[in-house]
């Protein structure tokens, strides 16, 4: 009886068996609310940042470009209303995560230039996929030649970064094969 008197309202809650479950649920709920809030603040900025990045890359690949249209994930590059090329985004599984590459094609469906948009590869090794000595190899190739030389193609892998090289190469080829079909059948 005496001990019951001493236990206040607070300790009664704390010693309740379901209290840990309730407490953890509340913490998770608050965390989710907080993240939703932060996400809503940063979302537009993050999307704008990505969009701006794509546009600058396209501008670099096609210096003549003055407009582009986006149809079925294909960027149709326009100059004064005429089609001068197509760009697609290839996603490959690299050593450290997804590698997103912009593939710029000319209007004859050959590779004009590729540019790695984002990657999480090992700095100093896998990140060499960003350098021109690697990306320049893709210029002027047809889809069937976009393979590592050890797989029968025309791209030399970076020594020490075969996984990253293969991820870029294979994703570029697959994206080209898939999207060229759409481009040709729809006459974009």
């Amino acid at each position: 009886m005496v001990s019951e008197k001493k236990t206040g309202f607070g300790t009664k809650i704390l010693s309740n068996k379901i209290y840990p479950i309730v407490f953890l649920s509340i913490i998770v709920f608050v965390a989710v609310l907080l993240l939703m809030l932060v996400n809503s603040f940063t979302q537009t900025k993050i999307l704008a940042e990505r969009e701006a990045k794509v546009t600058t890359v396209l501008q670099k690949i096609y210096p003549d470009m003055n407009d582009f249209e986006l149809k079925e994930d294909i960027y149709i590059i326009l100059k004064d209303g005429d089609v001068i090329g197509y760009s697609i985004i290839a996603v490959g599984k690299g050593y450290g995560g997804d590698i997103n590459t912009i593939v710029g094609l000319d209007k004859d469906y050959l590779v004009k230039e590729i540019s790695v948009l984002s990657n999480t590869e090992t700095p100093g090794l896998g990140t060499k996929i960003l350098e021109t000595f690697f990306t320049d190899q893709f210029k002027g190739l047809e889809p069937q030649d976009v393979k590592l030389s050890k797989d029968g193609g025309k791209i030399d892998a970076i020594s020490g970064a075969t996984i990253s090289s293969r991820a870029v190469t294979d994703s570029v080829r697959e994206a080209m094969e898939e999207k060229l079909e759409i481009i040709k059948s729809n006459n974009y």
Partner: peptide, 21 residues
Amino acid sequence: VTILSLVFEAYLPPLYESLGI
């Protein structure tokens, strides 16, 4: 950590990319 990575991605994209995983 999630707040941090959202803020980094929005306002410091180069750093966000180089820190990666």
